[in-house]
Simulated scan of single mutants.
Amino acid sequence: MVSGNLNVERLLDSICQDLKTLITYRNIEDPIMIGIRTGGVWVAERLHQQLGITSPLGILDISFYRDDFTRSGLNPKVKPSELPCSTEDRHILLVDDVIMSGRTIRAAMNELFDYGRPASISLITLIDLQRRELPVQPDVCGDTMILGPDQQIKLCGPDPLLLDIRQRQS
Protein backbone atom coordinates (compact mmCIF):
# COMPACT_ATOMS: atom_id res chain seq x y z
CA MET A 1 0.00 0.00 0.00
CA VAL A 2 1.31 3.44 -0.97
CA SER A 3 1.46 6.29 1.54
CA GLY A 4 3.22 9.59 2.19
CA ASN A 5 4.46 12.17 -0.29
CA LEU A 6 5.80 11.57 -3.80
CA ASN A 7 8.75 13.44 -5.30
CA VAL A 8 7.02 15.83 -7.72
CA GLU A 9 10.32 17.32 -8.93
CA ARG A 10 11.49 13.91 -10.15
CA LEU A 11 8.17 13.35 -11.92
CA LEU A 12 8.34 16.79 -13.60
CA ASP A 13 11.89 16.15 -14.83
CA SER A 14 10.81 12.81 -16.29
CA ILE A 15 7.75 14.36 -17.94
CA CYS A 16 9.89 17.14 -19.47
CA GLN A 17 12.23 14.61 -21.07
CA ASP A 18 9.34 12.56 -22.43
CA LEU A 19 7.56 15.70 -23.68
CA LYS A 20 10.67 16.84 -25.57
CA THR A 21 10.74 13.44 -27.27
CA LEU A 22 7.01 13.58 -28.05
CA ILE A 23 7.27 17.11 -29.51
CA THR A 24 10.20 16.09 -31.69
CA TYR A 25 8.67 12.77 -32.77
CA ARG A 26 5.32 14.34 -33.72
CA ASN A 27 7.05 17.37 -35.27
CA ILE A 28 4.99 19.76 -33.12
CA GLU A 29 5.85 23.42 -33.58
CA ASP A 30 4.69 26.21 -31.26
CA PRO A 31 2.31 24.17 -29.07
CA ILE A 32 -0.19 25.71 -26.68
CA MET A 33 0.06 24.30 -23.17
CA ILE A 34 -3.25 24.31 -21.27
CA GLY A 35 -3.68 23.31 -17.63
CA ILE A 36 -6.92 22.04 -16.13
CA ARG A 37 -7.79 24.02 -13.00
CA THR A 38 -6.45 23.68 -10.29
CA GLY A 39 -3.76 21.01 -10.03
CA GLY A 40 -3.26 20.76 -13.78
CA VAL A 41 -2.57 24.50 -13.93
CA TRP A 42 0.12 24.21 -11.26
CA VAL A 43 1.79 21.36 -13.15
CA ALA A 44 1.42 23.18 -16.50
CA GLU A 45 3.03 26.33 -15.08
CA ARG A 46 6.10 24.35 -14.09
CA LEU A 47 6.32 22.40 -17.37
CA HIS A 48 5.69 25.53 -19.45
CA GLN A 49 8.63 27.23 -17.75
CA GLN A 50 10.96 24.20 -17.87
CA LEU A 51 10.27 23.60 -21.57
CA GLY A 52 10.52 27.28 -22.53
CA ILE A 53 7.25 27.24 -24.48
CA THR A 54 6.73 30.65 -26.10
CA SER A 55 2.92 30.63 -26.45
CA PRO A 56 1.15 31.93 -23.33
CA LEU A 57 -0.19 29.31 -20.92
CA GLY A 58 -3.91 28.55 -21.11
CA ILE A 59 -6.21 27.62 -18.23
CA LEU A 60 -9.41 25.53 -18.40
CA ASP A 61 -12.10 25.39 -15.74
CA ILE A 62 -14.26 22.48 -16.86
CA SER A 63 -16.94 22.83 -14.15
CA PHE A 64 -19.75 23.47 -16.66
CA TYR A 65 -18.62 20.59 -18.90
CA ARG A 66 -18.62 17.85 -16.27
CA ASP A 67 -21.09 15.00 -16.75
CA ASP A 68 -21.71 14.83 -12.99
CA PHE A 69 -22.73 18.48 -12.74
CA THR A 70 -26.32 17.61 -11.78
CA ARG A 71 -25.15 15.13 -9.13
CA SER A 72 -22.44 17.12 -7.42
CA GLY A 73 -23.62 20.69 -8.05
CA LEU A 74 -21.50 23.63 -9.05
CA ASN A 75 -18.07 24.09 -7.53
CA PRO A 76 -18.32 27.38 -5.61
CA LYS A 77 -14.87 28.37 -6.90
CA VAL A 78 -15.72 28.30 -10.63
CA LYS A 79 -13.55 30.71 -12.59
CA PRO A 80 -13.59 31.43 -16.32
CA SER A 81 -11.29 29.55 -18.65
CA GLU A 82 -8.45 31.62 -20.04
CA LEU A 83 -7.22 30.58 -23.48
CA PRO A 84 -4.60 32.93 -24.94
CA CYS A 85 -5.63 32.27 -28.55
CA SER A 86 -7.80 30.15 -30.79
CA THR A 87 -7.24 26.40 -30.65
CA GLU A 88 -8.05 26.09 -34.35
CA ASP A 89 -5.35 23.98 -36.09
CA ARG A 90 -3.03 24.29 -33.07
CA HIS A 91 -1.22 21.50 -31.23
CA ILE A 92 -2.47 21.40 -27.64
CA LEU A 93 -0.52 20.02 -24.68
CA LEU A 94 -3.33 19.37 -22.17
CA VAL A 95 -2.07 19.00 -18.59
CA ASP A 96 -3.77 17.56 -15.51
CA ASP A 97 -2.36 16.38 -12.21
CA VAL A 98 -4.07 12.97 -11.89
CA ILE A 99 -6.04 10.89 -14.39
CA MET A 100 -8.43 8.35 -12.98
CA SER A 101 -11.75 7.75 -14.76
CA GLY A 102 -11.06 9.88 -17.86
CA ARG A 103 -14.17 11.99 -17.31
CA THR A 104 -12.28 15.20 -16.49
CA ILE A 105 -10.29 14.85 -19.71
CA ARG A 106 -13.45 14.21 -21.74
CA ALA A 107 -14.95 17.40 -20.30
CA ALA A 108 -11.76 19.34 -21.07
CA MET A 109 -11.73 18.16 -24.69
CA ASN A 110 -15.40 19.11 -25.09
CA GLU A 111 -14.59 22.62 -23.90
CA LEU A 112 -11.48 22.88 -26.10
CA PHE A 113 -13.52 22.02 -29.20
CA ASP A 114 -15.87 24.90 -28.37
CA TYR A 115 -12.88 27.20 -28.97
CA GLY A 116 -11.93 25.60 -32.31
CA ARG A 117 -10.71 22.34 -33.85
CA PRO A 118 -7.16 21.58 -32.67
CA ALA A 119 -4.63 19.89 -34.97
CA SER A 120 -3.88 17.53 -32.06
CA ILE A 121 -4.28 17.14 -28.32
CA SER A 122 -1.56 15.43 -26.28
CA LEU A 123 -2.45 14.55 -22.69
CA ILE A 124 0.15 14.97 -19.94
CA THR A 125 -0.46 13.87 -16.32
CA LEU A 126 1.66 13.53 -13.21
CA ILE A 127 -0.07 10.35 -12.04
CA ASP A 128 -2.23 7.71 -13.73
CA LEU A 129 -4.45 5.84 -11.25
CA GLN A 130 -5.64 3.38 -13.94
CA ARG A 131 -9.32 3.35 -12.98
CA ARG A 132 -10.71 4.21 -16.41
CA GLU A 133 -14.42 4.56 -17.11
CA LEU A 134 -13.73 6.10 -20.55
CA PRO A 135 -11.09 5.12 -23.15
CA VAL A 136 -8.75 8.06 -22.47
CA GLN A 137 -5.01 7.51 -21.97
CA PRO A 138 -2.18 9.98 -21.25
CA ASP A 139 0.52 10.44 -23.91
CA VAL A 140 3.04 11.37 -21.22
CA CYS A 141 2.73 10.35 -17.56
CA GLY A 142 5.09 10.83 -14.63
CA ASP A 143 4.08 7.66 -12.78
CA THR A 144 1.40 4.97 -12.60
CA MET A 145 0.00 3.64 -9.36
CA ILE A 146 -2.90 1.77 -7.91
CA LEU A 147 -4.30 3.05 -4.65
CA GLY A 148 -6.23 1.02 -2.13
CA PRO A 149 -9.98 1.60 -1.93
CA ASP A 150 -9.50 3.59 1.29
CA GLN A 151 -6.80 5.87 -0.14
CA GLN A 152 -6.87 9.17 -1.99
CA ILE A 153 -4.26 11.32 -3.68
CA LYS A 154 -4.15 15.11 -3.66
CA LEU A 155 -1.80 17.60 -5.26
CA CYS A 156 -1.00 20.44 -2.89
CA GLY A 157 0.63 23.63 -4.09
CA PRO A 158 1.49 25.61 -5.97
CA ASP A 159 4.81 26.20 -4.21
CA PRO A 160 6.03 23.68 -3.34
CA LEU A 161 4.14 21.05 -5.31
CA LEU A 162 3.49 17.98 -3.18
CA LEU A 163 1.56 14.81 -4.01
CA ASP A 164 0.02 13.57 -0.80
CA ILE A 165 -1.40 10.07 -0.47
CA ARG A 166 -3.59 9.54 2.55
CA GLN A 167 -6.38 7.47 4.02
CA ARG A 168 -9.92 8.61 3.16
CA GLN A 169 -11.84 10.23 5.97
CA SER A 170 -14.90 8.21 6.94
Rank of each mutant, 00 (worst) to 15 (best):
D159E: 15
Q130I: 03
A44Y: 13
S81H: 06
S120C: 12
I105V: 15
D97Q: 03
L147H: 13
Q137T: 14
D114G: 01
Y25G: 00
I153C: 11
T144F: 12
S86H: 07
V43R: 01
K77D: 13
R106E: 09
D67Y: 00
C16V: 06
K77P: 00
L12C: 14
Y25Q: 03
P76T: 03
I153Y: 12
P31T: 08
F64E: 07
I165N: 10
P31Y: 11
N5W: 05
Q17T: 02
V95A: 08
Q151L: 09
I59S: 02
D164N: 08
Q50L: 14
L47M: 04
R66L: 01
D143N: 07
R117Q: 11
T125C: 15
I165S: 07
F69W: 10
T54W: 00
T70P: 00
Q167C: 03
L163V: 05
G58L: 01
C141E: 10
L147S: 07
P149G: 12
S63E: 15
E111I: 02
D13T: 01
I165M: 06
D68Q: 03
I153Q: 10
L147D: 09
R26Q: 15
S170Q: 14
K79Y: 00
L134Q: 12
P80G: 11
Q17Y: 13
I121Q: 00
Q17F: 12
L162N: 04
M1R: 03
T125W: 07
E88T: 12
S170E: 15
L11T: 08
F64K: 08
F69Q: 12
G40H: 04
M33C: 12
F113T: 05
P80Q: 02
P76F: 03
T144G: 01
T87H: 04
C16Q: 01
D89R: 13
S3Q: 06
R90E: 14
V98K: 01
D67R: 07
S72K: 15
L12H: 06
R168N: 13
L19K: 02
R131L: 15
E82A: 03
V140K: 12
T54Y: 04
K154S: 14
I146Y: 07
K77E: 10
L94C: 04
E29P: 00
D128E: 09
A44V: 08
R131H: 13
G142E: 11
S122K: 05
I146W: 05
P135I: 03
G116T: 04
H91L: 04
N7M: 01
I121K: 01
I92N: 09
V41G: 08
I127E: 13
T21R: 13
Q130D: 13
R26I: 00
S63K: 12
R103W: 05
Y65N: 06
G116W: 11
L155R: 07
D164R: 02
S122N: 12
Q130N: 14
E133R: 14
P56G: 07
F69E: 04
P31L: 12
T38K: 14
S14A: 11
S170T: 10
